[in-house]
Design a binder for these strands. Sequence first.
DNA 1: CCTGGTTATGAACACGTGTACATTTTACCT
DNA 2: AGGTAAAATGTACACGTGTTCATAACCAGG
Lengths: 334, 334
Amino acid sequence: MAVKAGVSGATVSRVFNRPESVSPSTREKVLKAAKDLDYHPNVIATNFIKGISGNIGVIIPRIKNIHMLSVYYFAELLGGIGDALSRRGYNLVLLYHDITAPVMPGNDYTKYFKGNKVDGGILLGTFANEPSLVKLKEEGYRFCLINNYIENSGISYADADNLKGSYKAVKYLINLGHEKIAFLNGPMYYTNSIDRLKGYKRAMEEHGIPFNRELLFEGNYGRKSGYTAARKILSAKSPPSAIFVSNDRMAAGLLQGLLESGVKVPGDISIVGYDDSDVATVVTPQLTTVHVSFYEIGYRCADELVKCIKGEKDYFGISVQPKIVIRKSCSRPR
Amino acid sequence: MAVKAGVSGATVSRVFNRPESVSPSTREKVLKAAKDLDYHPNVIATNFIKGISGNIGVIIPRIKNIHMLSVYYFAELLGGIGDALSRRGYNLVLLYHDITAPVMPGNDYTKYFKGNKVDGGILLGTFANEPSLVKLKEEGYRFCLINNYIENSGISYADADNLKGSYKAVKYLINLGHEKIAFLNGPMYYTNSIDRLKGYKRAMEEHGIPFNRELLFEGNYGRKSGYTAARKILSAKSPPSAIFVSNDRMAAGLLQGLLESGVKVPGDISIVGYDDSDVATVVTPQLTTVHVSFYEIGYRCADELVKCIKGEKDYFGISVQPKIVIRKSCSRPR
DNA sequence: CCTGGTTATGAACACGTGTACATTTTACCT
DNA sequence: AGGTAAAATGTACACGTGTTCATAACCAGG
């Protein structure tokens, strides 16, 4: 290539990296030769010289090949991450992290970073206060969390404001006139679930409604757990007039369970879901739910992570605001 | 590292690549030193030497940041691809290919391959007989298609057997006693849609039911297009007793439309969906639908692609068999 | 103990680029 | 035209590994 263009290798390098540092005439000469030869700088050699891999790893936990993440926001999230990374010249590489049970103390994430495999990592689906995350941070690796955070750990994160989202949803029900509001939450090993419970409690408290332990239920974010919750909820001492559910899939299952029991939704019981996934619009009645832009979370997270890697900053905490989407699953109580 | 172990760099290299070629004593010496120093061979340098990137690109088409793929199988597919690749030491890198309209003649996929960015590509969501694919093949790049194929092109692919899946679904309806069976298909610029129409026709033909152009409808795989199709289908000269729908999302929309018009499902009209996505179980009645293992498609495809890259073969065509999943949306006709 | 052959190791080089430094060319001012 | 500073280009080297070839250590058979 350098010989074809009649210049030194250094000049070729300059044309592609700091074009302004080379005279217009030779610049054109080089570009023409590059076009003729279909020459493109070898990315591997470039990265090798720079001492980087050019890869950002997105680490995804799985149990026996089963995703623990809602697939619905997975695609959107990756889209955001991918756009941010490609704009900054990094590759988005997917790494699947196999675990055997929901809460594993000894997760070793370091293996993905050793030997310059990736320049940084985005960890999805990690658990509340997971010790391996703190360890990873201490070892000096560049990474951040999505959908989780650990206070005072210095670990960067991007998350939806789950407390606020939950708060808004419950407040919406309260404003409709509901007082007996049940909450079907997800597993408490997720920070998400913890925060949503806080939001639920805060909304109730602010309106002078005492927290009733009997109206709190826990599912596993799957449809079936919503379905089976229906029976439990209906057999409570004083059944609720509204139920806030921590994701749409469970809400859909719950809805099926309620309809089977002859309960009218929203006539007898109102439901608010969470996620605004496909499921929300497909169900009858369509679900009032809480929407979060996972594209935004992904994009901003990846963008900030790259800044950290480049040394422009060394910490970020992003909190994206959810919005309530009103559809057909709520009404005033009788 | 080499000095710490008291050996030459060449020996270190051998320990990690052909351990049997080095004496047990020095091997242990090297491994111990590696452990002490937390040494891991630099992947970038290794790839640089080998002249490879170690990356396989999964190329995903989008229109204005909107995925054209069903998100439901996206995660499963990537899981399969990721497992196969990591087992073989390759990275799965996601590449988003922005296009402006559904059918673009001039898609340039070559840019993802230039300069050793990736060693091979897996293209998703491409269109039937897309000329740019043939061009890509002619230029000698290693790649394959998922959910598409081009006959006699020599282009490798992995796909579900859509003709067979569609055939089974329609045959199931016929066996229940249906004769007036409508088909709500997806856009015909997808090979998938073309094949499903063939399967529909074949099943009808085999049972002596003439193909009726008036019972063929086309949507865009979105829920709304199913919803609006309900009215059209009901206003046909002789409305069908069953409808085969080319994906679950449209089927769910259709279901909503039918219920709103007072049609009972499956009493008045039976529905069969396609995909076996989340949507199928969330809807009432739950959808009888066609299931495909996208994990398998992804895994086998990636595995074969790596073989091609390593020169072990130079073509493959994988066809995965769909299965019908019977739920609650079908009954015998009146 | 020597010889021939086998096995284990080291020395030197190559891969394709970016960068620091040296050198040459250009531009401008007097 | 001469001189000096600035801009443009070239030279030489480094990055960390795998590989080839040469050398050294070892081993078995006589």
